[in-house]
Amino acid sequence: MTAAVVTAWRNLSVNNQLRKNKMALIGLAIILLLVIVAAIAPVFVPHHPYEQDLEKAFLPPSLEYPFGTDDFGRCIFSRIIFGTRISLAIGVVVTAISAVTGIILGMLAGFYSGIVDEVIMRIVDIFLAFPGLILALVIAGLLGPGMFNVLFALSLVGWMGYARVVRGVVLAEKEKNFVETARALGAGSLYIMYRHLLPNVLAPVIVMATLGIGQAILAAAGLSFLGLGAQPPVPVWGSMLNDGKMYLQTAPHLTIFPGLAIMITVLSFNFLGDGLRDLFDPRLREKTIE
């Protein structure tokens, strides 16, 4: 799924560059807003996210409860705000683990070539040949529900893209004169990788990681929607949707607001990632059709 959506974004032909930059800025603004909201959540929310009041269950949105209340009478707005923390944390941690793993393995494969390259890239092929979400589901499911298991499962299926891209860049860069010069001056392999090759892979990795955070948030929401991930009463967007689905008929606000939260967050990361790609790598910029 991740690959399909990334491909999709690559193929979205937004008509002109200006509009694209505007979208990237909107994405960035929303992400900053989400980060601030997540940081100051405790002082920001009108109610405690765990505070139950069964007499106030299923209230429609009002001034006191901006998004209404859920089946336990908890404030949906407060729970979504606290859910922002968890979602952003999952997205960032999964992406960081995937990216670091991918950079290290891709760097090794590209730098040493030969048998090291062969082994690493075959492992990449094996992981890429399997639908990532299903593998993550099986792993998280077998290890049992819980946030850590979701983090582990999503990181395990998310690193291959980084490894491929980093390997490609390293293969191209390591033949260049500055690397030869450094080696002639007596620099060791680790030093060359860190000092000369790493800076060159950062731009594509940052673009991938921005899109990756959105995808990780989406995948984590999917897993917690299925009932894996952090368990009640922890406010997670995916499981809030799952709870709400039983009351779709009578109280659709239980479903609609967490759904919107997921959508807006993922959309923002996609906007920003797309804009960053244009900024960092003009070669990847799509031919404008105007």
Binding site: V5, A8, W9, L12, L218, A221, G222, F225, G238, L241, G244, K245, L248, Q249, P252, T255, I256, G259, I262, M263, V266, L267, N270
Partner: peptide, 21 residues
């Protein structure tokens, strides 16, 4: 644009809400 960024579980629930319920 909306279609590509909407998680399928949200869309599924919305469709159920409007067209089935």
């Amino acid at each position: 644009l909306l279609g590509v960024s909407m998680p399928n579980f949200c869309l599924g629930l919305l469709l159920i809400l409007f067209f089935a319920v």
